[in-house]
Design a protein around this nucleic acid. Sequence first.
DNA 1: TTATGGATTAGCT
DNA 2: GCTAATCCATAAA
Length: 223
Amino acid sequence: MRKSHTVQIRPLHRAFFSRDPRRVARELLGKVLVREAPERLTARIVEVEAYLGEKDPASHTYAGNTARNSVLFGPPGHAYVYFIYGTHYCLNVSCEPEGQAGGVLFRGLEPLSGIEEMAQARGIEVRSTTDLPKLTSGPGRLSEAFGITRARDNACDLTSPASSLWIGEDRYRAQNVRVTPRIGITKAADKPLRYLLDGNPFVSGKGLQKRPGRVSIPQIRSK
DNA sequence: TTATGGATTAGCT
DNA sequence: GCTAATCCATAAA
């Protein structure tokens, strides 16, 4: 019995991730993150950032291989989950061949299925479509919506549908790809390594502006 | 051994 | 606009 709205999602090959994080980040836009919970959760990737490894001052691997970041030096396509500010988890996928550091941080997802479960995990009520970005817009939020923790998901193989957490593709083609500087970092904050689908409401930082008042962010004035 | 601050978010002024 | 929340890797001592 096939559900009428079921869309087939195919896993990405490991070779997809065995490349420069910039390339992987760009091509991850439009792909789908899947959580095989009791109810399957799926969401489209709409915002990511590339972290380049040992030569990138903003990367966790800048100081070399440690117990915390070793997944980023391991084989590509695996989850690197870290805990930040004492409150939030963030999800990355390892890139580059084994032995070489590099990764992509997930910053924004557009929910496709399992929205009820995501709202429950986030502890919020979705009253209208304008509330949806509160579920998965931002690295900490999307991790909470998907129940991602370091204990549960770090080092998980994201190329295998047998994993609880994995990345796949349907037929969606990303459009309006845009590149901007990365957000929230203090080192190497000038490099354009943030990739997003322009205009998508699930991109963090905009569409969720705290205040309508003053739009002083220079990067959103282009075009 | 102790100190510092971060790839964030929510809530208050 | 500002900052508390609150853990842990890393630096300093």
